Each structure stands twice: as C-alpha cells, then as structure tokens.
Amino acid sequence: MIKYGVIGTNFITDWLIEAGKEVNDFQLAAVYSRTKQRGEEFAEKHNAPHVFTNLEEMAKSPMIDAVYIASPTAFHAEQAILFLNHGKHVLCEKPIASHNQEVAEMVRTAENNQVILMEAVKNTALPNFQQLRTAIDKIGPVRRMVTSYCQYSSRYDAFKEGKVLNAFDPTFSNGALMDIGLYCVYPIIDLFGKPDSIKASGVKLSSGVDGEGTLLLAYPDMEAVAMYSKITQSHFPSEIQGEKGTIVIDHIQKLEKINIHYLDGQVEKISLPQNNADMSYELQVFHEKISGKNESSQINSLETSLQTANVMTEARDQLDVVFPADESRMK
C-alpha cells in the first residue's frame, strides 16, 4: 500500500480520494489543513486516521509515503520541495508550479532525493490519449494541431461585480492559462515536444490575470494552436491535421470520443470506453512510477512538465501577466 497525505480540503481532493478507491494500493493516511477543525471534518468525511496542521510535521511523519498537493499553485513549489526533501513521493496538481524556474528546482530536488515527482495532468494519462498517440502515424505527416478549451467560469459573474475570487487572483498564480489553458498546451508538448517559437495573445483582466488567450507554437514542419478561456464558452473540438486525414477530439480535457476522418471520406473510431474515474488513471501512472513497473513510460514525464512550464512562463511574459511568485525568477 502507498500511504497518502493530502494537502487541500477542496472538491479536487475529494475527486482524488474517490478515484483512489479504484486503485488497489491507494490508502489515505493523513489530511493537512491550516485549521484543525476543517482538517478533522475532512478526515472524518474520508476516514483518514491522522490530521496535521503543521506541514513540517507531516513531511517528517513515517505515517505517509506520498503526498498529493492540491493547494493554490503559488504554494506548490515550496510544499513539494519540503516533502521531496523528506523522502516523500509527490503528486502535484496542475499546474505543477508558478513558473519554469520553480519546476526546475522541484525536478532537481526529486532527483537528488531519488523520489518520484509527477504533475497531476489527467487528460494525458487517460487511455484515449494513448490511443491518440499511437494513431498519429495513420494521418501522415502532421501539419497542425489545434486544441480548444473555453469554459465560462461560474466565478466570472462575481468578478464582474467587483469580487475577485481565487480563480482570478494573481496572488495564487491563477488565471485562464494556468487553470485550463494547460489542458491545451500540455498535450501539444507531450506529442511534439519543445516548439521553436511561441506567440501569445489574450485578454488581461483588471486583477492582472488573463481571462482568455491563444498560443501559437511553431515547429519546423507544423504549427500548433492552443485556445483557452474562462470568460467565454465554446463547443469547438480539437484536431490534429495530417496530410492523410484529421483526428477529431470531442474535448481535449476528457477525450471521450476520438475519430479519424480520412481524405477518402472514411471515418475510423479510435476511442475506447473510459469507465473509471478520470483521476484514477493518473494515480495508476504515479504508482507505476513509484514501483518502477514501467520505467520507460513517458506519460506525464518531468521533461514534459518542464517544457510546458517554459512555454507557459514565456506566454505569460508576452501577455504581461505577472504573479507575486515571479519575483523569485526576476532577481
């Protein structure tokens, strides 16, 4: 069994714990909360035997083997490094950190302590993303990939009324690119690697974060476009366009329905049923990395996380979206 501590008592942590019930060697051992009352309430809800209100004590505890971090992004690097230095494996919610230098430091710390660090990006861990990966050769040389995730935020109405909630607060390293744009950028980097150049455009909100944006990533023989928004809604699919056909993806976050449309008019369905909880697949990948069962797997690799962080950091610089956390890289 892998004994987990969790940081964050929100709905995302609820989802992770529920997904853990579908993974044989997952065991919830401890909950961290800044307040004892909230920690005890969350622990009781999920039958966790231990509650911590001090992160250092939790990191030192022999009662956990791994930690799942679902705190605001601004805290990810500091918290992850603390646990990595105490020999704990770290599954860190996306985005893994505020900027590329933090990610690089986290990777170095994991390597120095010989423990596993993984970014919890769920769409690239799904079975249908692996189906997608193996199907690319069928459409010939790829010339364009377009990803789209535009979802009107339930918190945007409050923002327009003058209330800045966490989702639009730069203090927590938030905004559209960080929150949902990553679901568009990460798969592109996973499939095609580091781009030669990046061009970013978008709408910057009064709080200082981006509300929506578009990234154009240039490669030697193709280009990729990532479109994302928290202030508009879209039903536009994502595509990978090749010279022999086009792969059409219903939703880049979920990848439930994927078809290849060939030039001769034939359509091939390549998606499979994904009956388990979405987050159970990333948990399984994380556990395989810990056990060393699949050392050659590139699913949610640290290289992809680093390259994605490089792209997103440069994009924010072009958009002039600055977080307090950026002070550490600008010194």
Rank of each mutant, 00 (worst) to 15 (best):
F52S: 11
V51A: 02
K60T: 01
L55Q: 15
I64E: 04
E40C: 09
V51T: 12
A43N: 10
E40V: 11
G39Y: 11
Q27V: 13
F42K: 13
E40Y: 05
E41R: 14
P62W: 02
D65M: 02
A43P: 08
A48D: 00
E57G: 02
A29G: 10
D65N: 15
N54R: 05
L55W: 05
K36N: 05
P62N: 00
G39D: 13
S33F: 13
T53G: 12
E40H: 07
A30G: 14
Y32F: 15
S61K: 00
E44S: 14
L55A: 05
Q27H: 13
V51W: 06
G39V: 05
E40R: 13
H50P: 02
K36G: 04
A43T: 06
M63P: 01
D65I: 11
S61P: 03
R38C: 03
A48F: 06
E56I: 01
F42M: 03
R34D: 08
A48S: 11
E41G: 02
K60M: 02
L28T: 08
V31K: 14
P62T: 03
L28G: 07
F42W: 11
A29I: 06
D65V: 03
K36L: 12
E41M: 02
H46Q: 02
F52V: 09
F52N: 07
D65A: 05
H46L: 01
S61R: 01
V51N: 01
A48W: 05
D65T: 07
M58N: 07
R38K: 15
E57I: 01
R34A: 13
E41Y: 06
A43V: 08
P49Q: 10
S33Y: 03
R34K: 15
